[in-house]
């Protein structure tokens, strides 16, 4: 299996893996320094092939890019994780994080709602299996973008997206606790159509799902009972993952 995954380095460097395979490969990759070195070198060779196609862009594009960048904040650099006194990172509570089958099943709805971008872990619905592909994986991806959103009920939600994993995740640990007859529910909104993405049975677990298409909005509402077919309350927060 290891050897088999290792040989995916070429296809990975060419972005020629499906989202599922890429996630599987990256799991192996994280613990394989020789793979990391090889992928970097193969990406470099591929990049040179790409550079050989250079073509002058239209002159008007530069002003457009500069003015768009002007409106964009920059992400801070990464800081070493073991800084003493730092709040516990998501990774440190990872041992408790497990997918519920329900979140997995519900997340599959996003797959349909946003047009065919699969979740990496679709087939794995056993609650006790060791699901390494999860919330923390997205937050800790090399190319992760993160944002913190405050919610209308006085909580906080951290959102992460990772293009290489093609996933987004929410850390909902800091949401206020709800009564026994209420749940937080995640929605994918496209053209004002709400599709349920997940019911957060245990907000401490957070949730991860396929990266929604550009422009699709993800929102959280508080719903009665076990969740609703369509939202019955106004969202407490919303985010456009492609803009995180």
């Amino acid at each position: 299996m290891t050897i088999d995954l290792h040989t995916l380095s070429g296809a990975y460097a060419l972005n020629a893996l499906s989202a599922d395979e890429a996630a599987e490969f990256l799991e192996h990759y994280d613990n394989c320094p020789s793979c990391q070195q090889e992928v970097r070198e193969l990406q470099d060779a591929a990049a040179k092939m790409g550079e050989s196609e250079a073509m002058q862009p239209p002159a008007h594009l530069k002003a457009r890019v500069m003015s768009a960048a002007d409106k964009q904040p920059q992400l801070p650099p990464r800081v070493a994780q073991s800084t003493p006194g730092e709040a516990p990172s998501v990774a440190e509570v990872d041992g408790r994080r497990r997918w519920s089958p329900r979140i997995l099943a519900a997340a599959a709805v996003v797959l349909i709602a946003v047009g065919g971008i699969g979740i990496a872990n679709q087939g794995n619905q056993e609650p006790d299996s060791n699901l390494a592909i999860g919330v923390t994986r997205v937050f800790e991806a090399q190319d992760a973008s993160t944002a913190t959103k405050t919610t209308r009920n006085g909580g906080k939600v951290e959102v992460a997206t990772s293009p290489s994993l093609n996933k987004m995740a929410v850390d909902t640990d800091a949401l206020p606790e709800l009564g026994d007859d209420e749940v937080y529910q995640l929605w994918a909104i496209s053209d004002d159509v709400y599709e349920s993405a997940a019911v957060l049975d245990d907000p401490k677990q957070g949730a991860a799902m396929a990266m929604p298409s550009e422009g699709v909005e993800v929102a959280i509402t508080i719903e009665p009972g076990d969740g609703s077919e369509q939202p019955t309350t106004d969202p407490i927060m919303s985010v456009v993952p492609s803009e995180v």
Partner: peptide, 15 residues
Amino acid sequence: VTQEVFLEVWRKAAR
């Protein structure tokens, strides 16, 4: 795509 790339480069340069 070119614009998306440069925005990503701008935003993630520190990473």
